[in-house]
Design a binder for these strands. Structure first.
Length: 421
DNA sequence: ATGATTTGACCACT
DNA sequence: AGTGGTCAAATCAT
């Protein structure tokens, strides 16, 4: 049995931990600008390069793990990874506070400590760092861009040209289940579908005089509606990139070219809107300056996953906050609340977790994020506020239970519930 | 048959 | 008037 330092774990774990270390990037969709202010121009490039390298190596290691049993070899690989991250830390901390050996230094993203159950996140990093996020999931065949970085805005939408391979996600690390019963891991986004036609082939549809009926409820935008923007890396899948999978299933309902943006913006609504009237929506846009990064803006909350109590009753490690996720009628709100108001990014964390694992399991609505961070969390949150949030333990538990039954949307949306068209 | 995507048009908002 | 968000027919995939 090889024991790796928490921060040396391969991608999914390290990414997860990073995310749960408060690096989750989440903010109002209006904000823009750099996330990382590295001071000198070249500094962040180097940091990125280092982190990328570390992530890449970790990805490779993970890929090799199943077939490798040589402790010495694994240790060497771990050191290489540690070195890469250490170098990044060194650059970040400057000459004075450099960390020469990441293996003995603090976790790359700080704020972690080994507890009874392992690595438990306790505090989130200083505000500035909170912006430092951007996930990427280097896979064996494509280890590009590792992660977080703060790009500022949201990630761009799926480019249909590349998109959508029809089979299972090539890139399902630690994902026990393919997604959900509808086979849409990344939601409709990856469910496959027609490849975008060239403009010239403008379908045979002879544009009938738009039969748009008289005012049928094109709802006026709710200006007060909270939105959450998240920057996520594309899912590397060999030579294509899929939009980030946040664990929910989405159905695309529109795409639009946005002024000033190189890539079009795609609009998605929850696939279960018709089942449960779920109003969750999201806009996905690929960044102009980084095609591997998408900016996802979530609007509204998922009301379709409020009955995922089985998931939320995952065993909690001893010592972890015991506040139940199950008592609330609204799992999403409850979960976020439990994590506490101090963790502004928790919904994102969970969303990320969600994306790492069998989606749909985690009934945490990202759309609830803003609401949760503002709204009183209630007694549960209050109780959890001063407690070590079991985020990571939960994550581990979830990873470990990724193959458990119930990961399928079937368990949540039984066929008889479906009233969709 | 069913469900998802594409895409032009419509409409709200600024 | 310009832009962004949504609708829905046509089309495509399973």
């Amino acid at each position: 049995m090889h024991v790796l330092a928490p921060h040396l774990l391969a991608p999914p774990f390290s990414a997860l931990r990073a995310a749960n270390s408060g690096l989750g990037y989440y903010r109002d969709h209006q904000s823009r600008g750099r996330i990382i202010d590295g001071g000198e121009p070249g500094v962040m490039d180097e940091v990125l390069s280092r982190i990328s390298e570390g992530f890449r190596l970790a990805g490779e290691l993970m890929a090799e793990l199943p077939a490798t049993n040589d402790p010495a070899y694994l240790a060497a690989r771990c050191h290489a990874i540690a070195h890469a991250y250490g170098a990044a830390a060194h650059v970040l901390e400057g000459p004075a506070g450099g960390v020469d050996d990441a293996a003995t230094g603090p976790p790359p993203f700080g704020g972690g400590e080994a507890g009874a159950g392992g690595y438990v996140h306790q505090q989130r990093p200083p505000a500035p760092q909170a912006d430092l996020l951007r996930m990427s999931f280097p896979g064996p065949e494509d280890a590009r861009s590792p992660l977080f970085l703060g790009a500022a805005g949201p990630p761009p939408p799926p480019q249909h040209h590349h998109h959508l391979g029809r089979g299972p996600h090539p890139h399902q690390w630690f994902r026990a289940a393919p997604s959900d019963a509808y086979g849409a891991g990344a939601g409709a986004t990856s469910s496959g579908g027609p490849v975008r036609r060239l403009a010239s082939s403008s379908s045979s549809r002879s544009s009938p005089p738009s039969p748009v009926l008289p005012w049928q409820g094109r709802r006026r935008r709710e200006s007060g509606e909270k939105k959450v923007m998240v920057t996520m890396a594309a899912q590397p899948t060999g030579n294509t990139e899929l939009p980030p999978d946040d664990g929910y299933t989405w159905r695309k309902y529109g795409q639009k070219d946005i002024l000033g943006s190189k890539y079009p913006r795609s609009y998605y609504r929850c696939t279960h809107k018709n089942y449960y009237g779920c109003e969750a929506k999201k806009k996905v846009q690929r960044r102009d300056d980084d095609r591997f990064t998408y900016e996802v803006t979530y609007c509204g909350s998922h009301s379709c996953l409020t009955s995922v109590t089985p998931l939320l009753t995952l065993p909690m490690p001893a010592g972890a906050a015991t506040t139940s996720f199950t008592s609330s009628p609204n799992a999403a709100t409850s979960a976020a609340a439990v994590l506490g108001p101090d963790l502004v990014v928790e919904p994102l964390h969970l969303g990320i977790l969600n994306s790492w694992m069998s989606p749909t399991n985690l009934g945490v609505g990202l759309g609830e994020a803003s609401t949760c961070s503002n709204a009183p969390a209630g007694a549960a949150a209050a109780a959890a506020r001063d407690t070590d949030y079991p985020v990571l333990d939960l994550a581990d538990v979830m990873f470990n239970s990724g193959s458990r039954g119930g990961s399928s949307m079937d368990g949540i949306f039984s066929s008889h519930d479906r009233r969709d068209s």
